[in-house]
Simulated scan of single mutants.
Amino acid sequence: MTMVPELQSSSLTEAIFVGDGEMATLMRSYNWANTSLGLVENWPQSLKTLVSTILVSRFPQAIYWGEDYIQFYNDALIPIYGAYHPHAVGQPLPETWPEVWDDQFSSMCEGVRNTGEAFFVKDQPQLVLRFGYLEEAYFTYCYSPACDETGKSRGIFATITETTQQVISQRRLTMLRELATAVSGAKTLQSACLAAADTLNPYDIPFALFYRVNSQGNLAELVADRGLTSDSAATPSTIALIPESDTNDSTEQSRGWLLAKVLQSREPQLITDVVDRFGALPGGPWPESSHSALILPILSGNKEQVECLLIVGISPRLEFNPEYRSFLELVAQQVESSIATARSYEEERKRTEALAELDHAKTLFFSNVSHEFRTPLTLINGLAAQLGK
């Protein structure tokens, strides 16, 4: 990007690119002569007015002008541009966002510019490449025609709001509600894990593995899974829980899930090299492999021991931020609660069975005692009857 302040009249640029914000400062120093728009003084008055309007607005707004959709945007839209900022300024929209510029999107833009009819969409899913990876994102936007002095539509006036956080938060909240319902009737640890696995959303949890820890704490057994095949290197039926201090082979540390570390610390463990460990793994609905996974401990009702270890894949198209981590911890807590309830149910069932056994034993004992008392009395009564004759 070439900055040449001397090309433009200071008074003119300050009148158009108003304010002391980042975008106003950037546009004042931009070499607009190198774009299809040419020198600023030759711009139509309508474009100058639109640019000055969006720069003072606190709502995310942009202008895409001309047949190549040259971009202007304000400070409020910088977070949406992400890594594309500031290079997108003055550049054609299709060149900045090639992953967005498909037939449908280009037809929509052409429709607004050619027909003069606005286009509005809410929570539109969009795959964008802002931070070095193809990202699942959602936007609500209105594209209106931007007209010149003759009333002819020359471009697009865009008002854009990113709703990614709201859409994904609602999706996760829905899943947590469904999870709570699904596991509420579980009577055993395994049934709780199976019910939980069936409700996990693949957009946020591409795969999941539930490992039950044995009473000795030295072996984990796979009791439920989702999103992985049984022949995958990532789904062993059992995993020996060997403490790291007992493992001297460094190559051993680079393989497997290292569940023993989570068992010992009782803290979640992020694994960022799952592809190196196991090869490509499912990415949920996306073609890319999950690159990371989180191992979460599921504790007993009294919090004294680890009942289960939950391994969840992380979406390759979402940032693993604190909100994502908190969501996964809530999933583990929900399963933990259901297992504790199942344990209570199991203990109550065992108590009921024990009481029934005790009651049966008492009945049998007194029945036998009664029989033993009746037998000698019968003999005595019989003998007495004989003597009386």
Score class of each variant (00 low, 15 high):
residue 4 V to E: 01
residue 11 S to R: 15
residue 13 T to G: 02
residue 13 T to H: 00
residue 16 I to N: 12
residue 23 M to L: 12
residue 23 M to P: 01
residue 29 S to G: 04
residue 31 N to P: 03
residue 32 W to E: 05
residue 36 S to E: 12
residue 37 L to F: 00
residue 38 G to K: 09
residue 44 P to S: 06
residue 47 L to M: 14
residue 48 K to M: 15
residue 49 T to H: 07
residue 52 S to N: 05
residue 53 T to A: 12
residue 53 T to F: 09
residue 57 S to Q: 13
residue 57 S to A: 15
residue 58 R to K: 06
residue 59 F to D: 12
residue 63 I to Y: 02
residue 72 F to S: 01
residue 72 F to V: 04
residue 79 P to I: 10
residue 80 I to E: 06
residue 81 Y to G: 01
residue 83 A to L: 09
residue 84 Y to T: 05
residue 86 P to A: 14
residue 88 A to Y: 08
residue 91 Q to S: 10
residue 94 P to L: 05
residue 95 E to F: 03
residue 97 W to V: 09
residue 104 Q to R: 02
residue 105 F to A: 08
residue 107 S to V: 04
residue 108 M to C: 07
residue 109 C to E: 00
residue 110 E to M: 10
residue 112 V to R: 01
residue 115 T to C: 04
residue 116 G to S: 05
residue 117 E to F: 07
residue 124 Q to E: 11
residue 126 Q to S: 15
residue 126 Q to L: 14
residue 129 L to W: 02
residue 134 L to F: 07
residue 137 A to K: 08
residue 143 Y to E: 03
residue 144 S to Y: 08
residue 148 D to H: 07
residue 154 R to Y: 03
residue 159 T to M: 13
residue 163 T to F: 11
residue 164 T to K: 05
residue 166 Q to G: 00
residue 167 V to E: 06
residue 168 I to C: 02
residue 170 Q to I: 08
residue 175 M to R: 08
residue 177 R to W: 07
residue 177 R to S: 11
residue 177 R to N: 14
residue 179 L to C: 06
residue 179 L to N: 08
residue 181 T to Q: 13
residue 181 T to K: 14
residue 192 A to P: 02
residue 192 A to E: 07
residue 198 D to L: 04
residue 198 D to Y: 02
residue 211 Y to Q: 06
residue 213 V to D: 00
residue 217 G to E: 09
residue 217 G to M: 09
residue 220 A to P: 02
residue 226 R to P: 00
residue 226 R to I: 01
residue 229 T to M: 01
residue 236 P to E: 03
residue 238 T to Y: 11
residue 244 E to C: 07
residue 251 T to S: 15
residue 253 Q to D: 11
residue 258 L to Q: 15
residue 259 L to D: 11
residue 261 K to S: 10
residue 262 V to I: 15
residue 264 Q to D: 14
residue 266 R to A: 14
residue 268 P to Q: 14
residue 268 P to E: 15
residue 269 Q to W: 11
residue 274 V to R: 13
residue 275 V to P: 06
residue 278 F to N: 06
residue 279 G to M: 08
residue 283 G to T: 04
residue 284 G to L: 11
residue 288 E to W: 03
residue 291 H to F: 10
residue 297 P to Q: 06
residue 298 I to D: 05
residue 301 G to V: 02
residue 302 N to H: 11
residue 303 K to P: 06
residue 311 I to M: 03
residue 317 R to F: 07
residue 318 L to F: 14
residue 320 F to R: 00
residue 324 Y to E: 13
residue 325 R to F: 10
residue 326 S to C: 08
residue 345 Y to E: 00
residue 349 R to G: 03
residue 350 K to C: 02
residue 352 T to D: 09
residue 353 E to P: 06
residue 355 L to K: 09
residue 364 L to S: 10
residue 364 L to I: 05
residue 364 L to A: 12
residue 365 F to R: 15
residue 366 F to G: 00
residue 370 S to E: 12
residue 370 S to H: 09
residue 373 F to Q: 03
residue 374 R to P: 00
residue 377 L to M: 11
residue 380 I to V: 14
residue 384 A to M: 12
residue 386 Q to K: 05
